[in-house]
Amino acid sequence: MAFRRFAKSLLYALPLGITFLDCVGYVARVDGISMQPVLNPDAEERDYVFLLRWGIHNSAVERGDIISLISPKDPAQKIIKRVVGMQGDVVSTLGYKHEIVRVPDGHCWVEGDHTGHSLDSNTFGPVAIGLMSARAVAIVWPPERWRILKNELPGRRRPIQVAKTSYYN
């Protein structure tokens, strides 16, 4: 009897949980040093971030957001990077085959904060927006590192036309 009750509550809770993870968000561990110093400042200690899935599909992503996306090279792998340019932006690249790139429609330019130690758009070019899976909003673990992740973009990495308009105003 207890088993039947357990199975029944599992049957009720499982779809609810999966739907919650799919629609609202989930917590994931960050591996690697590509987002230093914001994430994983100490390579030994891994950060856990909360990834918000809500609103990722109606293109609510802005420049400076930290997003998680499916790697364009290997679909089994997820990578976490910062959005540097949205579609239509003109980005000056760091070691890509073209020095200046206009991000095509439906794509964005993503980079890790740790320049030179990150496998990002400077290697594989602009990525399709459809590969984005979630936006990182906060570090939740370890407790002493708890913080909200701010939307910030270093001034030198702003797309060219944005940097220009803010310079003249």
Partner: peptide
């Protein structure tokens, strides 16, 4: 499994318009 083969018809997100 991602065992797509040539000849399969697939539904994908458009790379030029994510909606």
């Amino acid at each position: 499994w991602r065992n797509y083969q040539s000849g399969d018809i697939i539904i994908a997100v458009s790379p030029v318009n994510a909606d």
